[in-house]
Design a protein around this nucleic acid. Sequence first.
DNA 1: CCACTAAACGATATTTTGGT
DNA 2: ACCAAAATATCGTTTAGTGG
Length: 276
Amino acid sequence: MMDLDERKRHILKALINDYIVTAEPVGSRTIAKRYRLGISSATIRNEMADLEDMGYLEQPHTSAGRIPSDKGYRVYVDCLMGSEKLSNQEIELIKNSICSVIEGEINRIIKEMTKVLSALTNYTVMVMAPQTMNSMVKHIQLIAIDDLHVMAVVVTNFSVVNSSSITLSRPIDSDKLMTINNILNDKLKGLTLEEINLKIISEVQNSVTGYSEIFNEIIPILYKSLKKRDKGEIYLEGSSNIFNYPEYNAIDKAKQFLTMLDKKDLLRNLLSCDGD
DNA sequence: CCACTAAACGATATTTTGGT
DNA sequence: ACCAAAATATCGTTTAGTGG
Protein backbone atom coordinates (compact mmCIF):
# COMPACT_ATOMS: atom_id res chain seq x y z
CA MET A 1 0.00 0.00 0.00
CA MET A 2 2.72 2.41 0.91
CA ASP A 3 5.13 1.17 -1.71
CA LEU A 4 4.27 4.33 -3.57
CA ASP A 5 6.61 7.25 -3.59
CA GLU A 6 5.46 10.82 -3.60
CA ARG A 7 5.42 11.12 -7.35
CA LYS A 8 3.54 7.91 -7.99
CA ARG A 9 0.93 9.01 -5.54
CA HIS A 10 0.54 12.34 -7.29
CA ILE A 11 0.14 10.66 -10.61
CA LEU A 12 -2.32 8.12 -9.30
CA LYS A 13 -4.32 10.85 -7.66
CA ALA A 14 -4.38 12.99 -10.77
CA LEU A 15 -5.35 10.06 -12.90
CA ILE A 16 -8.19 9.03 -10.68
CA ASN A 17 -9.44 12.59 -10.38
CA ASP A 18 -9.52 12.82 -14.12
CA TYR A 19 -11.14 9.47 -14.52
CA ILE A 20 -13.87 10.36 -12.06
CA VAL A 21 -14.73 13.42 -14.10
CA THR A 22 -14.44 12.03 -17.61
CA ALA A 23 -14.95 8.30 -17.19
CA GLU A 24 -12.53 7.86 -20.06
CA PRO A 25 -9.17 6.13 -19.84
CA VAL A 26 -6.52 8.69 -18.97
CA GLY A 27 -3.26 8.87 -20.88
CA SER A 28 0.10 10.13 -19.76
CA ARG A 29 -0.11 13.17 -21.99
CA THR A 30 -3.41 14.24 -20.53
CA ILE A 31 -1.99 14.12 -17.05
CA ALA A 32 1.14 16.00 -18.02
CA LYS A 33 -0.88 18.73 -19.66
CA ARG A 34 -3.73 19.07 -17.27
CA TYR A 35 -2.09 18.66 -13.94
CA ARG A 36 1.20 20.50 -14.25
CA LEU A 37 3.20 18.12 -12.13
CA GLY A 38 6.42 19.45 -13.58
CA ILE A 39 7.38 16.24 -15.27
CA SER A 40 7.05 15.12 -18.84
CA SER A 41 4.55 12.72 -20.27
CA ALA A 42 7.30 10.20 -20.88
CA THR A 43 8.19 10.13 -17.23
CA ILE A 44 4.56 9.82 -16.34
CA ARG A 45 4.29 7.02 -18.84
CA ASN A 46 7.04 5.14 -17.09
CA GLU A 47 5.48 5.68 -13.71
CA MET A 48 2.14 4.59 -15.03
CA ALA A 49 3.68 1.41 -16.35
CA ASP A 50 5.04 0.81 -12.86
CA LEU A 51 1.68 1.54 -11.31
CA GLU A 52 0.10 -0.93 -13.66
CA ASP A 53 2.64 -3.60 -12.74
CA MET A 54 1.84 -2.97 -9.11
CA GLY A 55 -1.81 -3.44 -9.83
CA TYR A 56 -3.08 0.06 -9.23
CA LEU A 57 -4.04 0.72 -12.82
CA GLU A 58 -5.45 -1.17 -15.73
CA GLN A 59 -5.31 -0.67 -19.42
CA PRO A 60 -8.45 -1.44 -21.40
CA HIS A 61 -6.39 -2.05 -24.52
CA THR A 62 -2.95 -1.15 -25.75
CA SER A 63 -2.79 2.41 -26.89
CA ALA A 64 -5.49 3.52 -24.57
CA GLY A 65 -5.00 5.44 -21.37
CA ARG A 66 -5.15 3.81 -17.98
CA ILE A 67 -8.03 3.41 -15.64
CA PRO A 68 -7.78 2.80 -11.94
CA SER A 69 -8.17 -0.74 -10.65
CA ASP A 70 -10.04 -1.63 -7.50
CA LYS A 71 -6.74 -1.56 -5.70
CA GLY A 72 -6.09 1.89 -7.11
CA TYR A 73 -9.42 3.20 -5.87
CA ARG A 74 -8.68 1.65 -2.52
CA VAL A 75 -5.54 3.71 -1.91
CA TYR A 76 -7.26 6.72 -3.40
CA VAL A 77 -10.00 6.47 -0.84
CA ASP A 78 -7.69 5.47 2.00
CA CYS A 79 -4.84 7.90 1.58
CA LEU A 80 -5.11 10.16 -1.40
CA MET A 81 -8.41 11.91 -1.56
CA GLY A 82 -8.30 13.62 1.78
CA SER A 83 -11.43 14.45 3.68
CA GLU A 84 -13.62 17.45 4.00
CA LYS A 85 -15.31 18.59 7.14
CA LEU A 86 -19.05 18.31 7.15
CA SER A 87 -20.93 21.57 7.26
CA ASN A 88 -23.13 22.32 10.23
CA GLN A 89 -26.10 21.95 8.00
CA GLU A 90 -25.05 18.47 7.01
CA ILE A 91 -24.40 17.55 10.59
CA GLU A 92 -27.88 18.78 11.49
CA LEU A 93 -29.41 16.66 8.76
CA ILE A 94 -27.68 13.60 10.07
CA LYS A 95 -28.63 14.32 13.66
CA ASN A 96 -32.25 14.90 12.81
CA SER A 97 -32.64 11.79 10.81
CA ILE A 98 -31.02 9.73 13.50
CA CYS A 99 -33.41 11.17 16.07
CA SER A 100 -36.37 10.43 13.87
CA VAL A 101 -35.67 6.73 13.71
CA ILE A 102 -33.59 5.93 16.73
CA GLU A 103 -36.53 4.34 18.47
CA GLY A 104 -37.43 2.34 15.41
CA GLU A 105 -36.40 -1.01 14.17
CA ILE A 106 -33.01 -1.49 12.74
CA ASN A 107 -34.11 -1.85 9.14
CA ARG A 108 -35.81 1.53 9.33
CA ILE A 109 -32.63 3.00 10.69
CA ILE A 110 -30.57 1.55 7.89
CA LYS A 111 -33.07 2.76 5.33
CA GLU A 112 -32.99 6.24 6.77
CA MET A 113 -29.21 6.32 6.83
CA THR A 114 -29.11 5.17 3.25
CA LYS A 115 -31.34 8.08 2.36
CA VAL A 116 -29.21 10.57 4.25
CA LEU A 117 -26.05 9.33 2.64
CA SER A 118 -27.59 9.67 -0.77
CA ALA A 119 -28.88 13.15 0.01
CA LEU A 120 -25.48 14.34 1.21
CA THR A 121 -23.44 12.87 -1.58
CA ASN A 122 -25.77 13.04 -4.56
CA TYR A 123 -24.71 9.55 -5.31
CA THR A 124 -26.68 6.41 -5.68
CA VAL A 125 -26.27 4.55 -2.44
CA MET A 126 -26.58 0.87 -1.85
CA VAL A 127 -26.28 -0.49 1.62
CA MET A 128 -26.18 -4.10 2.56
CA ALA A 129 -26.49 -5.20 6.13
CA PRO A 130 -23.20 -6.83 6.99
CA GLN A 131 -22.99 -10.49 7.82
CA THR A 132 -22.37 -9.72 11.47
CA MET A 133 -25.82 -8.26 11.81
CA ASN A 134 -27.37 -11.64 12.24
CA SER A 135 -30.97 -11.55 13.05
CA MET A 136 -32.03 -12.81 16.37
CA VAL A 137 -35.23 -14.13 17.74
CA LYS A 138 -37.01 -11.47 19.70
CA HIS A 139 -40.27 -13.12 20.40
CA ILE A 140 -42.33 -16.09 19.44
CA GLN A 141 -46.07 -16.11 19.83
CA LEU A 142 -48.36 -19.06 19.26
CA ILE A 143 -51.98 -18.13 18.82
CA ALA A 144 -54.74 -20.66 18.75
CA ILE A 145 -57.10 -20.09 15.91
CA ASP A 146 -59.26 -23.08 16.63
CA ASP A 147 -58.75 -26.56 17.99
CA LEU A 148 -56.63 -27.68 15.09
CA HIS A 149 -54.97 -24.51 13.85
CA VAL A 150 -52.26 -22.47 15.44
CA MET A 151 -50.76 -19.26 14.16
CA ALA A 152 -47.05 -18.91 14.82
CA VAL A 153 -45.69 -15.40 14.82
CA VAL A 154 -41.96 -14.84 14.90
CA VAL A 155 -40.56 -11.43 15.57
CA THR A 156 -36.86 -10.79 15.00
CA ASN A 157 -34.78 -7.82 16.01
CA PHE A 158 -35.08 -6.59 12.46
CA SER A 159 -38.77 -6.28 13.02
CA VAL A 160 -39.38 -9.00 10.52
CA VAL A 161 -42.64 -10.54 11.45
CA ASN A 162 -43.24 -13.89 9.98
CA SER A 163 -46.48 -15.56 10.63
CA SER A 164 -47.50 -18.94 9.41
CA SER A 165 -50.30 -21.20 10.41
CA ILE A 166 -49.78 -24.70 11.59
CA THR A 167 -52.35 -27.39 11.18
CA LEU A 168 -52.48 -30.04 13.86
CA SER A 169 -53.70 -33.57 13.60
CA ARG A 170 -55.20 -33.54 17.09
CA PRO A 171 -56.54 -30.72 19.19
CA ILE A 172 -54.51 -28.85 21.75
CA ASP A 173 -55.84 -26.86 24.65
CA SER A 174 -54.80 -23.30 25.21
CA ASP A 175 -52.99 -23.98 28.48
CA LYS A 176 -50.73 -26.45 26.81
CA LEU A 177 -50.19 -24.08 23.94
CA MET A 178 -49.21 -21.38 26.39
CA THR A 179 -46.74 -23.70 28.02
CA ILE A 180 -45.13 -24.57 24.75
CA ASN A 181 -45.04 -20.92 23.85
CA ASN A 182 -43.21 -20.11 27.06
CA ILE A 183 -40.72 -22.88 26.57
CA LEU A 184 -39.94 -21.73 23.08
CA ASN A 185 -39.38 -18.19 24.23
CA ASP A 186 -37.30 -19.30 27.17
CA LYS A 187 -35.00 -21.37 25.09
CA LEU A 188 -34.79 -19.43 21.89
CA LYS A 189 -35.19 -15.77 22.66
CA GLY A 190 -32.09 -13.79 21.89
CA LEU A 191 -30.49 -16.47 19.80
CA THR A 192 -29.24 -16.02 16.28
CA LEU A 193 -29.52 -18.53 13.52
CA GLU A 194 -26.03 -19.82 14.20
CA GLU A 195 -26.72 -20.25 17.85
CA ILE A 196 -29.74 -22.42 17.33
CA ASN A 197 -27.80 -25.62 16.99
CA LEU A 198 -28.73 -29.22 17.35
CA LYS A 199 -28.19 -29.19 21.09
CA ILE A 200 -30.66 -26.39 21.59
CA ILE A 201 -33.11 -27.93 19.21
CA SER A 202 -33.10 -31.28 20.95
CA GLU A 203 -33.33 -29.52 24.29
CA VAL A 204 -36.48 -27.80 23.19
CA GLN A 205 -37.74 -30.95 21.62
CA ASN A 206 -37.42 -32.81 24.90
CA SER A 207 -39.25 -30.08 26.76
CA VAL A 208 -42.27 -30.24 24.52
CA THR A 209 -42.69 -33.97 24.31
CA GLY A 210 -46.00 -34.98 22.98
CA TYR A 211 -46.34 -31.92 20.81
CA SER A 212 -43.59 -32.47 18.36
CA GLU A 213 -46.02 -31.60 15.64
CA ILE A 214 -45.99 -27.94 16.61
CA PHE A 215 -42.32 -28.05 17.24
CA ASN A 216 -41.50 -29.56 13.89
CA GLU A 217 -43.44 -26.83 12.18
CA ILE A 218 -41.89 -24.07 14.21
CA ILE A 219 -38.30 -24.78 13.31
CA PRO A 220 -38.60 -24.11 9.59
CA ILE A 221 -40.58 -20.96 10.32
CA LEU A 222 -37.86 -19.73 12.63
CA TYR A 223 -35.28 -20.60 10.11
CA LYS A 224 -37.06 -18.71 7.40
CA SER A 225 -37.58 -15.64 9.53
CA LEU A 226 -33.94 -15.41 10.45
CA LYS A 227 -32.62 -16.40 7.08
CA LYS A 228 -34.64 -13.76 5.34
CA ARG A 229 -32.51 -11.06 6.82
CA ASP A 230 -29.27 -12.90 6.55
CA LYS A 231 -29.58 -13.03 2.82
CA GLY A 232 -28.71 -9.36 3.05
CA GLU A 233 -31.43 -7.09 1.91
CA ILE A 234 -30.11 -4.25 -0.15
CA TYR A 235 -31.13 -0.73 0.62
CA LEU A 236 -31.14 1.55 -2.36
CA GLU A 237 -31.51 5.30 -2.52
CA GLY A 238 -30.96 7.99 -5.10
CA SER A 239 -30.97 5.73 -8.12
CA SER A 240 -31.70 8.67 -10.39
CA ASN A 241 -28.40 10.21 -9.34
CA ILE A 242 -26.84 7.70 -11.64
CA PHE A 243 -27.64 10.07 -14.44
CA ASN A 244 -25.43 12.76 -12.90
CA TYR A 245 -22.21 10.98 -13.57
CA PRO A 246 -20.28 10.54 -16.74
CA GLU A 247 -19.77 6.83 -16.66
CA TYR A 248 -23.49 6.53 -16.83
CA ASN A 249 -24.26 9.51 -18.90
CA ALA A 250 -27.00 7.21 -19.73
CA ILE A 251 -29.15 9.32 -21.95
CA ASP A 252 -26.33 10.03 -24.35
CA LYS A 253 -25.03 6.53 -24.24
CA ALA A 254 -28.45 5.07 -24.70
CA LYS A 255 -29.13 7.30 -27.68
CA GLN A 256 -25.82 6.38 -29.19
CA PHE A 257 -26.46 2.78 -28.54
CA LEU A 258 -29.91 2.83 -30.04
CA THR A 259 -28.91 4.63 -33.20
CA MET A 260 -26.05 2.23 -33.54
CA LEU A 261 -28.34 -0.70 -33.56
CA ASP A 262 -30.11 -1.83 -36.57
CA LYS A 263 -32.36 -4.83 -36.46
CA LYS A 264 -29.62 -7.27 -37.21
CA ASP A 265 -27.43 -6.00 -34.40
CA LEU A 266 -30.34 -5.96 -32.05
CA LEU A 267 -31.08 -9.54 -32.80
CA ARG A 268 -27.50 -10.51 -32.41
CA ASN A 269 -27.27 -8.73 -29.09
CA LEU A 270 -30.36 -10.38 -27.80
CA LEU A 271 -29.10 -13.77 -28.83
CA SER A 272 -25.66 -13.28 -27.35
CA CYS A 273 -27.12 -12.12 -24.04
CA ASP A 274 -28.52 -15.61 -23.71
CA GLY A 275 -25.09 -17.14 -23.73
CA ASP A 276 -23.53 -15.03 -21.05
C1' DC B 1 30.04 6.74 -13.92
C1' DC B 2 25.35 6.08 -12.72
C1' DA B 3 20.58 7.05 -12.12
C1' DC B 4 17.06 9.55 -13.74
C1' DT B 5 14.43 12.43 -17.01
C1' DA B 6 12.59 13.58 -21.30
C1' DA B 7 12.48 13.61 -26.25
C1' DA B 8 12.07 10.89 -30.36
C1' DC B 9 10.57 6.89 -32.73
C1' DG B 10 7.84 3.01 -34.05
C1' DA B 11 3.83 0.17 -33.19
C1' DT B 12 -0.98 -0.52 -32.38
C1' DA B 13 -5.85 0.43 -31.40
C1' DT B 14 -9.64 3.66 -31.98
C1' DT B 15 -12.21 7.29 -34.21
C1' DT B 16 -13.29 10.10 -37.98
C1' DT B 17 -13.81 10.98 -42.65
C1' DG B 18 -14.91 10.36 -47.31
C1' DG B 19 -16.17 7.78 -51.27
C1' DT B 20 -19.27 4.30 -53.28
C1' DA C 1 -25.44 1.69 -45.18
C1' DC C 2 -20.76 0.00 -45.60
C1' DC C 3 -15.96 -0.12 -45.99
C1' DA C 4 -11.31 1.53 -46.21
C1' DA C 5 -8.03 5.09 -45.69
C1' DA C 6 -6.48 8.91 -42.83
C1' DA C 7 -6.12 11.07 -38.63
C1' DT C 8 -5.58 10.70 -33.80
C1' DA C 9 -4.24 8.99 -29.32
C1' DT C 10 -1.58 6.32 -26.65
C1' DC C 11 1.81 3.01 -25.50
C1' DG C 12 6.64 0.87 -24.92
C1' DT C 13 11.34 1.28 -26.01
C1' DT C 14 15.40 3.47 -27.33
C1' DT C 15 18.38 7.23 -27.07
C1' DA C 16 20.40 11.44 -25.58
C1' DG C 17 21.10 14.83 -22.09
C1' DT C 18 21.99 16.19 -17.08
C1' DG C 19 23.13 16.50 -12.22
C1' DG C 20 25.25 14.24 -8.35
